[in-house]
Simulated scan of single mutants.
Amino acid sequence: MPTPNQAALDFLLNRRSRPAKTLTTPVPNRAELETILTAAARTPDHGKLEPWRFIVLEKPALNRLAALVDQRGNDLGIDPDKITKANAQFATADLVVAVISAPVDSPKVPQIEQVYSAGAVCLALVNAGLAAGWGANWLSGWASHDRAFVTEGLGLAEHEHVAGFIHLGTEKNAPPERPRPDLAAITTWVDA
């Protein structure tokens, strides 16, 4: 019979992302963030390829990205309300970690598995932030899929993509619980 880690299980059963717009200062310092990043980097990674990387975005970089959102949104003819919302994702943030999917050539590990690993890093980063006592939220949005934005704003190579922007900070107020999936509706049991 396995010995459960009840504290970890309770944390996972009750975890709740904190809306990015409710996060403020203080934010994790470098040493605290390195612990969170170390935990996130322990994500399953077939073949030990490390097909992802982190870009830590502090306030000056976030302000620069907010301005770039405005420019790119106008260039692309994005609805002004969507531009304002995307701008706020950066302009009102104090610390964001961009998780970058950076697949590598591998004869054994398909690219899709490497992309899944980058997504798992995003969740691990959110959970590590929450477990460390911070508020955390995983966002993306149209700018994260705009090649010009990620190339100019983040310096991504052509084969790289944003898996997520993970916002970290101190929550102003706890969010209400939200409805959770109906396990019976999303689970199939196969016994033969």
Rank of each mutant, 00 (worst) to 15 (best):
K85L: 13
L156D: 01
D45N: 11
G73N: 06
V97H: 06
L130Q: 02
A98K: 12
A8M: 02
M1Y: 03
L156E: 01
V99L: 08
D75F: 14
R178L: 15
A66K: 05
P103R: 01
A67N: 14
A157S: 09
I78Q: 11
T84C: 09
G77H: 10
A185W: 13
F165D: 05
A61E: 12
Q89T: 15
P176R: 06
I112H: 11
L65V: 13
A163W: 04
N127Q: 09
S144W: 02
F11R: 00
L123G: 14
L13V: 00
A157D: 13
L125Y: 05
S17W: 03
P176D: 15
S106R: 02
K85T: 12
S106N: 08
L57N: 09
A7Y: 00
Q111S: 11
D70R: 09
P28Q: 06
V121R: 02
E32V: 12
N87P: 02
E113T: 05
D75R: 06
V126A: 08
G77A: 10
V96F: 14
H161F: 12
D105G: 07
I186A: 04
A91M: 09
S117G: 02
L123A: 15
V150I: 11
V69A: 07
V99G: 06
T22H: 00
P181H: 13
E113W: 11
E32K: 04
N5A: 00
A131M: 11
P4M: 00
D75W: 15
R18F: 00
L68C: 08
L12R: 00
R53Y: 15
A163I: 02
E58Y: 15
D105F: 07
H159G: 00
T24I: 06
V126D: 08
S144V: 08
T188W: 07
P103Y: 05
L33R: 02
T187Y: 10
E171G: 03
A124G: 10
A102H: 08
P44G: 03
N63G: 15
V99D: 11
D70M: 13
I55T: 12
N127D: 13
A185D: 14
R178S: 14
T43Y: 15
